[in-house]
Design a protein around this nucleic acid. Structure first.
Length: 770
DNA sequence: ACCGTATTCAGCGCG
DNA sequence: TGAATACGGT
């Protein structure tokens, strides 16, 4: 066996071999953090530590999978598959399936994802007849989530004068009531949301000494990745688990903490030494990823933050090119400049598309880049958006599975009680809920036997037909495997028919998605993934059942669904999504005040510092070349607004930057006086007359975009043949209205008659030359 | 129950 | 701007 320690530099080797006692590794960007973690685990196993006793907690499922693969490769044995590796949520969900009874949960509890959680909150706000404008679902969700993370129970919440004061002044005095109702409803539904997975794990360890003992001895060695992004609950859990022998190794980079907004606590990393005075702290400062210039730029930027652990990242790599800064007149032009630059760099360096990434602050910025890339025929892939398992059609199908596995799952029941439409309408559902409330039974029980006289014969029939169907599915749970049962449900419940009836492109797409879900289930059922060591009390089954499939489906995210079609494409994503990734060529775009840094961050020093860390993360994704861009004018919420360049641009030393004056595709040349100092401190905004930009935009906008001008894009008249991107070719029957509101009635073959607003319809005139 | 229309709202998103 | 949802008429 070769000595794996030879693959490491001195700093890394020290961090890997210090296996006993508390260790903190501060790992600068690109310094081989993952390497240290994987080698450390491999080293532990080489030393004879049983993999069953090693717990490694990662930030994403993907990270866990990749790390596991690397360790297996490193050790050349699959022994390391027995390491407990995963996210906090997935590891402790598994623990709770076994131990949850202690807390009053059945082992088949449902996991509510953010969507489900918000649906429940929404329903509660409605039931309590509160104003849904004052009580916005996302706001309530955040409040509840942070209360849970801070170990504040609904009772604490209601009794705390301080919190009540806050909520009153925010005009939301009844938030505590919502929180209370929410907790009750989740518990009665035998459901845990993401915060509950952590909260209940904490309660388990806190209130059940035998459980604490068991897991303290099970997990002799604990490693936590991305420690800067852990929240208070995660911190407490780790602390309790590690309390016995303190073989705890946390790895992170305070400079890359970018999730404070959702509860991550940078204090966890900053105060590690206080919690463990005897802790060994190591820094990894040699960067293997980026050029000297990029490392220097990143260092200079992060220097402006006060709250940080000192470290100086350096590299042996080449000096590299200067950072190019593009100044664009509009966001549309920004797209063209960036796409043009990618085109050029790709040519000059013979790099594949996948070497390029465009990173932006907000998802809404992707559009101009998509358009420009499409125009230049550069293939791209957008990350983010709605993930596969979040799609409505998928969630509808999954709700059937949820209900038959756990018939207390009220959200699932409500979701499918009338999908596909079976004549159980709003009135009936409300009646059921009232009866359930009065009799103290679950909604499902009520539906199964509503009691005499509540419903007329027709409604009663519909309800019992539904109940019978669901019961019959439940009965098959133990008999059919996941795929057989899923397919059966799709047919028997009429989901398949419902989906296939919709012939619109969106409908076909939905149908395909559900088909894809079935494929995934089939794959799962025929080749069950060899899970890690079974927990004591976990049951092993021969064939993968639907219940197995559903166990952690809520814990999957987009990153876990592999994209087979994704090969050589430019990546478009938010900076947050880029965390942990690297690309030879990186474009950071939209570097404007109020956008990056975001407008919400400007009032608070710590928020601004988080934005700066975000920028730091963005810069350090680049291996060879970095490009920055900003627009002087940008469409935001429908109107053109003037933008100032980001303060972050000033924080990079000028000598590291260059400003190509050359505009990519044909466009008016800029004045020589447009140098950077002029840009950084814009005096009076020169021109802000919409008319001035119209021409620029007009010539750039591809046919797909909505032009700013009032003139319609096409002249249409009855009898004309036109083409629509979705509906295909059709014939204009009538034109009504004036100007912006001009409406056309078009007959599309195979689809029928459609009324379209000319302004939006993206119609193309079909010309018949000859 | 369902459809078209009006209105509203807009941050980043791990699990 | 445009998506998502609420509303209101049939």
């Amino acid at each position: 066996m070769k000595d794996i320690l030879n693959d490491l530099n001195e700093e890394q080797r020290v961090a890997v071999t210090a296996t006993e006692g508390p260790v903190m590794v501060i790992a600068g960007a690109g310094s081989g953090k993952t390497r240290v973690l994987t080698y450390r685990i491999a080293h532990l196993i080489n030393k004879g530590i049983d993999p069953f006793h090693v717990l490694a907690l990662t930030f994403t499922n993907k990270a866990a999978r990749e790390m596991k693969d690397r360790i297996i490769k490193l050790l050349g044995s699959s022994e390391s598959a027995n390491v407990w590796m995963g996210t906090f949520h997935s590891v402790f969900a598994r623990v709770l399936r076994v131990e949850g009874q202690k807390l009053g949960y059945p082992s088949n509890f449902t996991i509510y994802d953010t969507d489900d959680t918000k649906r429940v909150i929404k329903a509660i706000i409605k039931d309590l007849q509160l104003d849904d404008k004052a009580y916005q679902v996302s706001y309530v969700y955040h409040r509840i989530s942070s209360a849970k993370t801070s170990l504040i129970t609904p009772e604490d919440y209601i009794q705390s004068p301080e919190i009540q004061e806050q909520d009153k002044s925010a005009n939301k005095p009844l938030l505590g009531m919502i929180y209370q109702a929410y907790r009750k409803r989740c518990f009665q539904s035998a459901a845990m949301d993401f915060d509950d997975l952590l909260l209940n794990t904490y309660k388990l360890l806190r209130d059940f000494p035998e459980a604490l003992y068991k897991y303290q001895h099970k997990f002799e060695y604990i490693l936590v990745d991305e420690y800067q992004d852990t929240n208070y609950l995660q911190y407490l859990i780790v602390k309790m688990l590690a309390a016995n022998n303190e073989n705890l190794c946390v790895v992170g980079d305070d400079a890359q903490s970018i999730y404070a907004f959702r509860g991550a606590n940078i204090q966890n990393i900053l105060s590690f030494r206080k919690d463990y005075p005897e802790a060994q702290v190591y820094k990894l400062e040699q960067n293997y990823r980026s050029t000297k210039l990029i490392v220097e730029a990143a260092n200079q930027v992060i220097k402006n933050n006060k709250n940080r652990i000192f470290k100086e990242v350096w590299t042996h790599n080449d000096q590299g090119h200067k950072i190019q800064v593009f100044r664009a007149i509009t966001d549309g032009e920004e797209g063209m400049l960036v796409a043009g630059s990618i085109f050029e760099q790709r040519m000059n360096t013979h790099s594949p598309n996948e070497a390029f990434a465009i990173l932006y602050r907000t998802n809404a910025q992707s559009r101009s880049f998509e358009e420009s890339l499409r125009k230049l025929n550069i293939p791209y892939r957008i990350f983010g958006g709605i993930s596969f398992y979040q799609r409505k059609e998928i969630k509808d199908v999954l709700a059937y599975f949820r209900l038959i596995i756990n018939n207390k799952d009220e959200d699932a029941l409500l979701r499918i009680i009338n999908y596909p439409a079976r004549g159980i309408g709003k009135t009936t559902i409300e009646k059921l809920q009232v009866i359930a409330e009065e009799t103290g039974r679950s909604l499902w029980d009520t539906l199964e036997s509503p009691g005499r006289g509540h419903f007329n014969e027709g409604t009663f029939q519909k309800l019992s037909a539904f109940a019978t169907m669901i019961r019959s599915f439940s009965a098959m749970l133990g008999k059919k495997d996941a795929f057989e049962l899923a397919r059966h449900i799709m047919h028997a419940a009429g989901i398949k028919r419902e989906l296939e009836e919709d012939k619109t492109p969106e409908g076909v797409n939905r149908s395909e998605n559900v088909e894809e879900l079935l494929n995934a289930i089939k794959e799962f059922a025929t080749a069950p993934t060899p899970g890690p060591s079974p927990l004591e009390g976990e049951e092993l089954e021969l064939r993968a059942s639907l219940a197995d499939f559903m166990k952690d489906i809520a814990l999957l995210t987009d990153a876990d669904v592999e994209d087979k079609t994704n090969t050589d494409k430019v990546s478009l994503m938010t900076v947050h999504q880029a965390k942990g990734l690297e690309f030879p060529f990186v474009y950071i775009v939209g570097l404007e005040e109020n956008l990056f840094p975001s407008i919400q961050s400007l009032n608070d020093r710590s928020d601004l510092e988080e934005e700066r860390r975000l920028f730091y993360v963005a810069i350090t994704r680049a291996q060879q070349r970095l490009f920055l861009s900003f627009a002087e004018n940008r469409y935001r919420w429908g109107n053109l607004t003037f933008c100032e360049p980001s303060r972050f641009l000033e924080e990079i030393p000028q000598e590291l930057l260059e400003f190509p004056r050359k505009a990519s595709p044909p466009r008016p040349t800029f004045h020589p006086k447009d140098n950077f100092s002029d840009i950084i401190t814009p005096k009076a905004p020169k021109i802000n007359i919409p008319g001035h930009y119209k021409k620029v935009i007009g010539t750039q906008s591809p046919a797909g975009s909505v032009p700013a001008s009032q003139e319609p894009m096409v002249e249409v008249f009855p009898g004309q043949e036109v083409e629509h991107p979705q509906f295909g070719k059709g014939k204009v029957l009538a034109v009504d209205g004036q100007g912006a509101n001009k409406k056309v009635t078009v007959f599309f073959a195979g689809i029928g008659q459609k009324q379209l607003l000319l302004k939006f319809a993206r119609l193309k005139v079909v010309t018949h030359d000859t």
